[in-house]
Amino acid sequence: MKILSLTNSPLDPSLGSGKTVLRWSQGLRDLGHEVEVYEPKDFQVLQGMRRGWKFRTAWGAWQFFKEKVRPQDYDLIEFYGDEFWLILRHLSSQKNRPLLVAHTNGLELLATERERKYNPPQSLRDRAYLEFAKQIHDRFSHIAFVNADVFVSICERDRHYMLDSGLYPREKTASIMPGLDVEYLSIPFTPERAHRVAYVGSWTQRKGLGQLCTVMGNLLSKYPNLTFDLYGTNTSPEIVIANFPSAIQKQITIHPRLPTQKIAEGLAKAKVFFFPSQYEGFGMAVAEAMACGCAAVTTPTGFGADLEDGEDALICDFEDIPAMERAIETLLNDEDLRSKIARNGYQRVQDLRWDLAVSKLERIYLDWLNVDSPRSNCPDTPA
């Protein structure tokens, strides 16, 4: 296959979306396919501006595509993100064109729906912007997905959302979970743990910071011997620690940016991993923590929505702070339950390997090209 990939995420391996695009692309190359990947810095216009990201990405990608890309040179074009609606709308009506794939690391349609629940408009200006977004961004996002031939997500939750929306028939959708880094998969399971709770993730509202700070503030106050480790916040420690009462701040460790191996070693010391995210395309942090032997407490989004409550993890509703607090406290105090959930979770993620994921993606792409290729169905295509 010859594949062109356009992504709305920088190809930065320290970012979840950037890492997955890099891994998919390199994995397909390793299997003998040609893959070209372009990121925002290659096409986005007016890159110094802070506003209008989606418009600048959409227009820049369209101009780049018209000037630099010959669609007929590719068997398949992947679009990571809904900003490529101009290209998709143009190509979908063309004959003798590549297969068009909406390959998401996070489904904007569902992410936006969730954001409007956990972050409702507070002011007249907010409400005005919401109406603007519904009329403009939501429509463009819908155009992007309705004009793709097939859809690939990295979790079943996003795939089912698209099926329920009626945008694709089941046979033109797939969900393929990404792989974990070897540093996490190489951690042996050890039931003996320190009295620690861990969190890995950026310090943004989407991660459920209100729930995180309230729950951990209560538990740290109740258990003076409990330690809370935070990794990957990408925010100054002063800003993070200010969200907790001064009396418990000595129980909190905010780790600087660390290599993957060090994060894995840190997680391997914790009893519980707490991740109250409001939306995830997958939620790699949960799977990584489970691979390190943590018992996870999380929400029904991304990978968390695929887990069995009470067996693989403890799953709490997005706003249910009392349930989150009870879940963590139960795991800290009930060694048998914690050990069972931690072991089940550990075993659940052992097959999350990049070689298996890429091989599955390759098989699905080849099947779609054999059955659904616009070229093979086009009467004007020469034999």
Rank of each mutant, 00 (worst) to 15 (best):
P224Y: 05
A357K: 06
E238M: 13
N119E: 13
C378N: 13
L212K: 04
V272D: 01
F79M: 03
L314T: 15
H142A: 15
G32Y: 07
S141R: 10
E131Y: 09
L314R: 14
S14I: 10
K134H: 12
D75T: 07
G232E: 07
I136C: 06
K360P: 02
Q211C: 12
S376Y: 01
D309L: 06
F84W: 03
G217D: 12
C378Q: 01
S14M: 08
V45M: 13
R97E: 01
I248E: 00
F55C: 00
P276H: 00
L356P: 00
Y346Q: 01
A268W: 04
N147C: 15
A289P: 13
Y346K: 03
E311W: 14
S123I: 14
K360N: 08
P245M: 06
W354C: 09
F145C: 04
V286M: 01
L130H: 13
L258F: 10
T214G: 01
V152L: 13
R51N: 15
P259H: 05
G201V: 09
C155M: 07
D336I: 14
A327L: 12
N225E: 15
T20F: 12
L307R: 04
I341H: 04
C213K: 12
F140G: 03
A198G: 14
I154H: 07
V101R: 02
E288I: 09
I315M: 02
V69D: 00
V197M: 09
G48Q: 10
A247L: 09
L99V: 12
K250L: 05
N96L: 07
S359A: 15
P188C: 04
W354A: 06
T330I: 02
L6G: 04
W62D: 14
E183H: 14
S236V: 14
S93W: 02
S92H: 14
V371G: 00
P379H: 06
L230Y: 03
I77M: 02
R196E: 12
V150T: 15
E83W: 00
R23E: 15
E329Q: 10
L314V: 15
N344K: 09
P256S: 11
